[in-house]
Amino acid sequence: MGKNRSPDDFLPLTPAMFHILLALADRERHGYDSMREVDERTEGKVRLGPGTLYGSIKRMLNDGLIEELDERPDPQLDDERRRYYRLTDFGYRIAVAEAERLAALVKAARSKKLLSQTKFGVR
């Protein structure tokens, strides 16, 4: 398990893992819900296939970044076969660490004037 390791040991995360952590940051979701959230948030630019989704979920479960819920949040609303996942505290810390790492990169890109001020709302 990765719980004895520092969040920095997991960085950089793969894009798929970071997107899944972002999808689970506000609430627990099942696999397809996470996939759809990523699709909508990125306006269709990032589409996770079932293999990428569950390969990432497997690794994050093993490392203790996410956990499976024992009960479905709303059993009447959807297929009972679905499994729901949520962020663990450790997963949350890793998501924050990755976000900070990316923010530092964006800051560096900005200082080199690689980002358009209008598009990315700089300063």
């Binding site: 996939m35 079932p50 293999g51 989704l53 569950y54 390969g55 076969r81």
Partner: peptide, 24 residues
């Protein structure tokens, strides 16, 4: 095509995700 252990653990979920994605 996947290793049997992976298929047993996640195969059912992957089919659900494929089915929903295809339908959408």
């Amino acid at each position: 095509a996947y290793p049997s252990e992976f298929r047993r653990e996640y195969g059912g979920q992957m089919v659900l995700v494929f089915r929903d994605g295809y339908r959408d």
